[in-house]
């Protein structure tokens, strides 16, 4: 215990740190499982993994309160899991089974679990930023204390909706947090090669009167601390924040992408020297967490994902009668009498 007190950055208690680790590790194992299930051809369509970006999802979700709202992109498995959505529901949706969060009607790119505050994952770049702004407007309008968080990639900073949403949120001082996960690549193209500024989100912040915030997105503690400050600002009525998290996507853009555009050695470098899971595991040890505790977390996460995988595999495909349900609010699809 004496050792702990001499360490810097000892502001996060052990319970919280284990929570952060558990969350990151769950995302890692579930995303790896999603990848394996592709190879078995059990995940159809496309899929965008967050391998290497787990600390961002874990850090923000751990700092949220239960009624906070998350808005995600098609790279949304991590954020959905981090809010506590069922692993069966997530893997089942990727496998387009009846047990999926949306019974196979949305698929990998549209994970939604409103019971956990995951207000959807959207696959047209930029669209969900104004939606998060709208959720924040509702919170302000109705006097609710929830905050909307919107996660997006570096590529999103070059689309109009990003700029419209930021201006709008600042003008009305809305409780929304814009989180840019800068993983260096806009799909297959290095982001700096097609962006006017070095830091695609943070360098635009001043245009909207916001602080330029850049953090190490592979350090769950730093993400968590930054998130706490932003949530507290938003909840006190002091308006939005824009946070650029530097990270690295260890998988391809989507399942179809082997990542051939990466310079030799880049991926290995990140995996070896800046992997969020490896870094956090070392930190736990450094702070005196017993190896046995870490092993226990890892074993229980693996068991959870294994069981969820089996359950999803055994789940039937969605019944054909749901094809035409929930087009309209009356539950059906009728457009004429």
């Amino acid at each position: 215990m004496a050792k702990k007190k001499t360490l810097k950055n000892n502001d996060i208690d052990e319970k919280k740190r284990l929570e952060l680790y558990n969350s990151q590790y769950l995302i890692r194992v579930a995303e790896q499982r999603a990848y394996d299930l592709f190879l078995e051809n059990l995940v159809k369509g496309t899929s965008h993994l967050s391998l290497g970006q787990e600390a961002i999802a874990a850090g923000f979700a751990t700092a949220m309160q239960e009624n906070d709202k998350s808005f995600c992109t098609y790279r949304g498995h991590a954020h959905t899991l981090a809010r506590g959505a069922s692993v069966v529901g997530v893997l089942g949706e990727l496998m387009q089974r009846d047990c999926g969060l949306m019974r196979g009607k949305g698929g990998s790119m549209h994970l939604t679990d409103t019971s956990k505050g995951v207000m959807g994952s959207y696959a047209i770049i930029g669209a969900h930023l104004p939606m998060a702004v709208g959720s924040a407007w509702r919170a302000q309008y109705m006097g609710h204390d929830d905050v909307a968080t919107v996660f997006f990639g570096d590529g999103t900073t070059n689309i109009g909706a990003f700029h419209e949403a930021l201006n709008y949120a600042v003008v009305y001082k809305l409780p929304v947090i814009f989180v840019c996960e800068n993983n260096n690549y806009m799909e297959y193209t290095p982001i700096e090669s097609i962006t006017a500024v070095k830091n695609p989100a943070a360098d635009r912040a001043s245009a909207y009167g916001l602080d330029s915030i850049i953090i190490d997105g592979n350090d769950a503690d730093e993400v968590y601390r930054t998130a706490q400050v932003a949530y507290s600002k938003a909840r006190s009525g002091d308006g939005p924040s824009l946070i650029e998290c530097k990270t690295y996507r260890q998988s391809g853009h989507s399942r179809a992408d082997p990542g051939a555009y990466r310079p030799d050695g880049e991926l290995d470098h990140w995996k070896k020297n800046n992997d969020p899971i490896t870094r956090y595991r070392s930190r736990l040890i450094e702070f005196g967490v017993k190896q046995k505790t870490i092993d226990g977390i890892e074993a229980s996460v693996k068991k959870l994902v294994d069981e969820a995988t089996e359950e999803a595999k055994n789940s039937p495909v969605p019944p054909e009668e749901i094809l035409t349900t929930n087009v309209y609010a009356n539950g059906g699809w009728a457009w004429r009498n």
């Binding site: 669209a127 104004p130 709208g134 509702r138 309008y141 003008v171």
Partner: peptide, 20 residues
């Protein structure tokens, strides 16, 4: 609002999704 049609419809949508 500003001349931001995407923000206008997006904001309306986010508000509608969450209770307005």
């Amino acid at each position: 609002t500003p001349i931001s049609e995407q923000a206008i419809l997006g904001a309306a949508m986010g508000a509608a999704m969450t209770g307005m």
